[in-house]
């Protein structure tokens, strides 16, 4: 059974009186352990698709099964809980909490899972940071870290909840080439460890990292 199974996903935004279709019927399957890149020019619908796959948004029509559960009808709190357990996000601009230390940032998703003590959460976060080679950065604030380190902390935060999929949005957009390469290496290691990655990018070099590339044009999967 595929981890992600999308059938005929559409998304229509209403701008005033005009309906603007962003997705026009996407069929997509991602199996466990895959490394998939979604590419396409801006406006092709790749951000919208990522939001739906990441349970930040729900499709206008079509079905979406994530890890065996149909989540296309979920809204609000239910969607938030799926997001917390099944999805790990890595954003283009890292989006770490500036006033929290690295380990506190990484532990944050566990806070919203509930029932795990702060001490246990931080212990898990530190262990994960050690594993990703960021042990020396534990206890530091984001403004003391380099861009590459920040992105790796963000990866750790995405992985802490042991999600079904890792959703990565333009990971190298804000990094120089050296830091970019470093981050891509981290993704490869994470993938090698058995994680499923869906990466959204318009950079062909980044997309080349993935085993499979899905190209979107005007809200449809290009052949």
């Amino acid at each position: 059974m595929p981890l992600i199974e999308a059938r005929g996903l559409t998304k229509v935004y209403r701008l005033g009186r005009v309906d603007v279709p962003a997705l026009r019927g996407i069929d997509l399957e991602v199996h466990e352990g895959e490394y998939v890149a979604i590419t396409g020019p801006s406006g092709s619908g790749k951000s919208t698709l990522m939001h739906i796959l990441g349970c930040l948004d729900s499709p206008t029509s079509g079905s979406y099964r994530l890890d065996g559960r149909d989540v296309s009808g979920l809204r609000g709190r239910a969607l938030a809980h799926v997001r917390n357990r099944k999805v790990g996000f890595v954003f283009q601009t890292f989006n770490l909490m500036p006033r929290m230390t690295t380990d506190e940032n990484v532990a944050l998703p566990l806070q919203y899972r509930g029932g795990i003590s702060r001490r246990a959460r931080l212990r898990r976060a530190r262990a994960l940071l050690e594993r990703l080679g960021l042990g020396e950065r534990i206890g530091h604030r984001p403004d003391e870290l380099s861009g590459g380190e920040l992105q790796r902390v963000a990866v750790a935060r995405a992985l802490i909840g042991e999600p079904a999929i890792l959703l990565i949005d333009e990971p190298t957009g804000n990094l120089d080439s050296k830091a970019g390469a470093e981050v891509l290496k981290t993704f490869r290691e994470v993938h090698d460890a058995g994680n499923t990655i869906v990466l959204v990018t318009h950079d062909p070099n980044v997309a080349a990292e993935a085993a499979r590339t899905i190209r979107l044009v005007d809200g449809e999967v290009a052949a």
């Binding site: 609000g76 709190r77 938030a80 809980h81 919203y112």
Partner: peptide, 16 residues
Amino acid sequence: VREIGIRMALGADGPD
């Protein structure tokens, strides 16, 4: 707003 968005992306619901 942005911080709220990140927290939501990490799984915070409305009541959180």
